[in-house]
């Protein structure tokens, strides 16, 4: 696959620490844009940390992140972040349209109102995700899958082409999961980039074309079926078990081979 440098998300020797614990260690990786990539790994493998690092919310202990030639901080309008569902106050006095309109806020100047073009983009985003009929509903009055789609629509209205999703499947029923899978697959064929932290390996295999398997360090990256081999999965998740087997020396095992 040939990729223009502009359309690639690069991580070079990325290291992130929370105090004494290492969340990501020496991660070097290229993620091609225009594909859908699942970020996989056990709890504490650094999945969410990787997303947060891309958005610049995480001070890096080392290494760098580049989107094409620039720092992702200079390309914030291209990035859309989707919150975890349980982080949202569903009783907030706001309608579906109100949430999707927020996607246009970054493009507006202080005190200016949404233009006709902004409203058109909001309408298009609502339409694409099948929310037009529900636009005037308060957001509590929706099913779980519909609630997820509201935030996908906001990301679309934003005009982003790189979507960062933190556990998008968490708390969705089977039907809503299938629906989301369809949407994400469609986005990928339209050349949009989806990067999602995912828990469920089988769901990831069905939904995403690429995978990144983490265990604080990089275990494997590439097409999803080459990443999710029994050997790789074993390697990524075995370290997690080590922590439980050696409660007195967790650091020793999670940080790879001892150097001394």
């Amino acid at each position: 696959m040939t990729t223009v440098p502009h359309h690639i998300l690069r991580f070079r020797a990325l290291t992130v620490r929370y105090g004494p614990t290492t969340a990501l260690e020496n991660l070097t990786l290229d993620i091609p844009c225009g594909s859908s990539t699942a970020i996989l790994g056990p709890n504490g493998a650094g999945k969410s940390t990787l997303l947060r690092a891309i958005l610049g919310w995480q001070a890096l202990a080392g290494g760098e992140i580049r989107l094409g030639d620039t720092h992702p901080q200079h390309a914030l309008p291209r990035l859309a972040y989707l919150p975890q569902r349980q982080a949202v106050d569903w009783d907030f006095p706001i309608t579906v349209r109100g949430v999707v309109e927020q996607g246009r806020y970054p493009a507006l100047k202080l005190c200016s109102r949404l233009s006709a073009a902004d409203h058109a983009r909001v309408d298009r985003a609502l339409e694409e995700l099948g929310l037009t009929e529900l636009a005037e509903r308060q957001i509590r009055m929706l099913s779980g899958g519909q609630q997820q789609r509201v935030f996908l629509a906001r990301a679309l209205a934003q005009g982003a082409d790189i979507f960062l999703l933190d556990e998008p499947f968490a708390g969705l029923d089977l039907f809503a999961c299938e629906e989301l899978t369809h949407i994400l697959r469609a986005w990928e064929t339209q050349g949009r980039t989806v990067l999602a932290a995912v828990h469920d390996l089988e769901l990831a295999r069905r939904t995403f074309t690429h995978g990144v398997l983490l265990d604080t360090t990089l275990v494997a990256a590439g097409p999803i079926n080459e990443v999710l081999t029994p050997a790789n999965i074993d390697r990524a998740f075995r370290h997690g078990h080590c922590v439980h087997e050696h409660p007195l020396h967790p650091a020793h095992h999670t940080h790879g081979e001892p150097t001394e």
Binding site: L55, Y81, V88, Y105, P106
Partner: peptide, 17 residues
């Protein structure tokens, strides 16, 4: 708008700078 975003979804507010 900043007040609305910060009240409703501080994470999104941060993500858009």
């Amino acid at each position: 708008r900043a007040i609305l975003l910060e009240t409703f979804d501080p994470v999104f507010h941060r993500a858009i700078g």
